[in-house]
Design a protein around this nucleic acid. Structure first.
Lengths: 205, 205
DNA sequence: CGACAATACGGCAGTCGCTGTCATTTGTCA
DNA sequence: TGACAAATGACAGCGACTGCCGTATTGTCG
């Protein structure tokens, strides 16, 4: 799972061109996040970001397809799904999710969490970015829904499987928002587990 | 609850100005939806819509703030929440939702459902529109989450309440998508009820 | 009926996100 | 070192969206 910011050393063997490219990319991300945090996403223009990173505006679009992309960061959803799919098929859905969350979060360092928090703060404060994030969640729900249906031996677009899977991803997203709104003071893994657990409690009868 | 298209007679007592305005608005909506359906949302420009409705592009923005707005139509979420809030506080969450869904859908005529289906078809085929719809769902989940927390006597940002409420709205959205993907052949109310029921089954243990 | 105000409309210029194109610079590798 | 490819910057252009202003249509009041 690729962390929200690049913490991996670019393998000193990389070519000069590669290293330059990494540096430019990192400069764009840093400049963008700082500007977004300071003056808001909407009020920041591509020209601002490019100027702060000392490249031409055209160059920005050679690294990111949209203004939103640099704010959203890498999408971790697909990896999550891969990890869930790798769990034994007879394991209950919620158990699989819990295990995967714990495993994935244990790989995140404190710095990673800080970076994640910074990103989430920006994303959840900006309606258009929030919308994009949910678009990913929707897609994840759809994919893992078909996965679940397949495990159960049902048609791929089985309504129940999709409702279940979407509810799980919704719970994850709500937990992230909750964590962010409390400035990351609570333990992320605990919040996520609590959110998943609440699904079981709420609809238990 | 305001239906997806204007079925209310504009109260023949309305002024000439009012009636003209309603007509222009209706023309814009009709032109936009037809163009979106025929050539897709992205491929349709504001100029196209304005030309088809025989007004200037500038005038379009005097009726709708964005290109998305005319496609999304009126948001029914707030009314849904109002109806849920009006239910007795001791009634179980899922029961309230079921009742409200039945009551609300009984008010929709066949034509309304056709119009709704046409809208949903466009919305769910266009990523940016889908994202906007889910943004509304998120907001609905947040609002009804605080409502639920308040009923339970918990803090307004209680995680569990928000997870529960968000899961319900997610289920509704999934049901709508499912219904639309099957070209509205299934009964909408039945699909919605089934989705809600699945929440209970999936997390029952 | 005739002013006067309110409202709706169209046109124009301008910003911003985003794309295609082309010439120039810079790293790479034989 | 010289040929080749990648990276960059500059420019023109499209589409969404806004502010501004002049004009036309409609409602209202004496």
């Amino acid at each position: 799972m690729r962390p929200p910011v690049d913490v991996l050393p670019p393998a000193a063997t990389a070519s000069l061109r590669q290293r330059k490219r990494e540096r430019t990319r990192a400069a764009l991300i840093a400049a963008a996040l700082e500007l977004f945090e300071r003056q808001g996403f909407e009020a920041t223009t591509i020209d601002d970001i490019a100027a702060a990173a000392d490249v031409s505006p055209r160059t920005y679009f050679r690294y990111f397809a949209t203004k939103e992309e640099v704010a959203l960061g890498d999408d971790l959803g697909p990896q999550l799904i891969g990890l869930i799919a790798a769990r034994p098929a007879e394991e209950p859905m919620l158990d699989s999710v819990r295990r995967v969350i714990d495993d994935a979060l244990s790989l995140l360092s404190g710095e990673d969490k800080d970076a994640l928090l910074a990103r989430l703060r920006i994303v959840y404060r900006t309606p258009s970015l929030r919308a994009r994030r949910w678009e990913f969640q929707l897609e994840m729900g759809r994919i893992s829904g078909t996965l679940l249906a397949q495990r159960r031996g049902l048609e791929p677009d089985d309504l129940g499987s999709r409702v279940t899977a979407s509810a799980v991803f919704t719970a994850i997203e709500v937990a992230m928002d909750h964590w962010q709104q409390h400035d990351g003071r609570e333990d992320l893994a605990a919040v996520l587990q609590a959110a998943i657990a609440h699904l079981g409690h709420a609809f238990g009868g």
